[in-house]
Amino acid sequence: YVNFFTHSSVAQLPEAAKEFAEEISRLSTGDGQKVTVIWKTGMPANFEVILNPTTSFWGEGNFIRYLSRMGVLDNTQDTDDMLLDMSHQLLVLSDDRKEQTKLADRLMGTIRKQKASQSVDYTTYSALRNFRNATKSDKVDVVLQDIMGRL
C-alpha cells in the first residue's frame, strides 16, 4: 500500500514520476505493508529510507539489501553484492553518459551469465529502466523483459 507526497523542494514533478505513481496506484491492493514515498530534491543521494526519526539510510539497492536481511525478499548471496553495487553506480554515473553506457553493458553481460536472485532482479531492473529513461537507449529492453518474465 503506497502513498505519495510531493515535498515543496520539487517545483514540478516529472512525467515519469507521475506515470510511476499512477501505475503503483493501479497495482496497490490497499492492504499489506504501508509505504510512503515523498518526492524530494536537494538530498545527498536520490533515495533515502527513513525508519524512524533518528534512523535512516541511503540507496535503493541498500533498501533491497535491508528487505532481504529482514526476510521480506529472498536472501542475497555474496555474488549479488557486486551486482547491487553496479546498479547503484549506474545511477550515480548519470553525468558521464559514456561511462554509464559502458557500465550498463557490463551489468547486462554479468546478469545474463549468472542466476539472478529476486533482490538483483529488482535492483538491476530499476537501474536499467532509469538508464533507459535518461538515454532513450532501447538496448536494455530485452533484459528488462527477461526480468519481468521471471517475476
Binding site: V2, H7, V10, L13, P14, A16, A17, F20, E23, I24, L27, S28, Q33, K34, V35, T36, V37, I38, W39, K40, T41, M43, A45, N46, F47, E48, V49, I50, L51, N52, E60, F63, I64, M70, V72, L73, L91, S94, D121, Y122, T123, Y125, S126, R129, N130, N133, I147, L151
Partner: peptide
Amino acid sequence: LPDEYVIAVDPATIPYSLLLMLQ
C-alpha cells in the same frame, strides 16, 4: 518489521523496484 516505510526519492530517478514488489 516497521509499520510503515517512509522513503524520500528524488524524482530525477524512479524507484522501479517498488513497482516490481507489487507485481
